[in-house]
């Protein structure tokens, strides 16, 4: 029995570095670039920094991101940078010896979207309230940039860990940073609730009522979340504990997603379902989380190609 469990565990979580094909890393960059574009293409509505946060607390002013005139040159520049970031490394994949030059160029170009994404998030959070909508996007960009910078520093691809090339390393580091956000969230959840997190989950019903009210007063339109669940959780506390209890281990052990493609697929799908459930119940969007989970963890293109290859070889 124990041997069987060990075998299953090894199958699920054997450490097999994910060596992406060039078209996979292309799709990953495209997914990240789309998330950045979607989150940064519009001028911000925040015109001041009343409660400085992050870089703004050090005197950096990001209010120019709400200036319509600035956006006339910023948006096209951002688009160009993102296109170059997506397409340029394809040349780098073909080059063997001078690939680091392409990495250097990509890393330099990526600085602009990274700065804009950082500025957007910091400006939003400098209003006195914390918002974590785009945190995952900036984190993903940071992971990409760090890996490219490291590849440039090492120069020789043979010196990169686990036989990765720079783009494979970028995908791996981005996943590592993304999963860190989940692990930290779960850890703090346990610490701040003094371990009582599961016992108090029936009160989640009040949070649903709160979210429903907030959703209505945003545009004065009836929200489409499952508002009926609010009283249901109060009436059925054990069911609430089971339903919500699943989320905690999923976040806490999110690092297991890093071990191989199978574990990445499992955590990608389950975390996607987790976010979708919150969207349904609480009316919270999680668009960027879902997009990046699909892009970096579920990675459907690779599974489809593998299935197609199997079908062809079976014939």
């Amino acid at each position: 029995m124990i041997q069987k469990i060990t075998r299953i565990w090894r199958y699920c979580f054997a450490f097999e570095p994910i060596q992406h094909a060039w078209w996979e890393t292309f799709l990953i960059r495209a997914g990240i670039a789309y998330a950045v574009w979607h989150s940064c293409k519009d001028p911000r509505s925040e015109t001041a920094q009343p409660v400085p946060h992050g870089l703004t607390a050090w005197g950096v002013d990001f209010t120019w991101l709400s200036n319509n005139q600035t956006m006339t040159w910023l948006v096209p520049t951002l688009a160009i940078c993102l296109w170059v970031y997506v397409l340029l490394p394809i040349i780098g994949e073909a080059l063997k010896k001078a690939a680091w030059v392409i990495d250097l160029a990509t890393a330099v170009i990526l600085l602009f979207p990274l700065w804009i994404s950082l500025g957007n998030g910091t400006l939003i959070n400098s209003q006195g309230a914390m918002n974590h909508t785009t945190q995952i996007v900036t984190t993903a960009l940071l992971g990409q940039w760090l890996a490219l910078a490291w590849s440039c520093y090492r120069r020789d691809p043979a010196k990169l860990p686990r036989g990765y090339n720079s783009q494979q390393l970028a995908a791996d580091w981005t996943r590592q940073l993304m999963m860190a956000t989940y692990v930290v969230s779960a850890t703090t959840k346990l610490i701040q609730s003094h371990g009582n997190w599961l016992a108090d989950t029936p009160y989640f019903g009040l949070q649903i009522a709160k979210s429903t009210g907030q959703a209505f007063y945003e545009w004065l339109s009836p929200p489409d979340n499952a508002a009926w669940l609010s009283q249901f959780f109060i009436d059925h506390p054990h069911l609430a504990q089971v339903m919500l209890g699943v989320g905690l281990p999923l976040e806490l052990f999110a690092f297991l997603a890093l071990y191989n493609r199978r574990s990445a697929l499992f955590f990608g799908i389950t975390l996607f379902i987790f976010h979708s459930t919150i969207t349904e119940v609480m009316n919270l969007n999680f668009f960027y989380h879902k997009l990046l989970l699909i892009t970096l963890l579920v990675n459907p293109s690779w599974w489809l190609v593998m299935a197609a290859r199997k079908l062809v070889s079976a014939k």
């Binding site: 974590h132 945190q135 930290v184 009160y203």
Partner: peptide, 10 residues
């Protein structure tokens, strides 16, 4: 961010 969404249900 170390923000734990819905860490404390009151």
């Amino acid at each position: 961010s170390n923000f734990p969404m819905y860490s404390n249900f009151e």
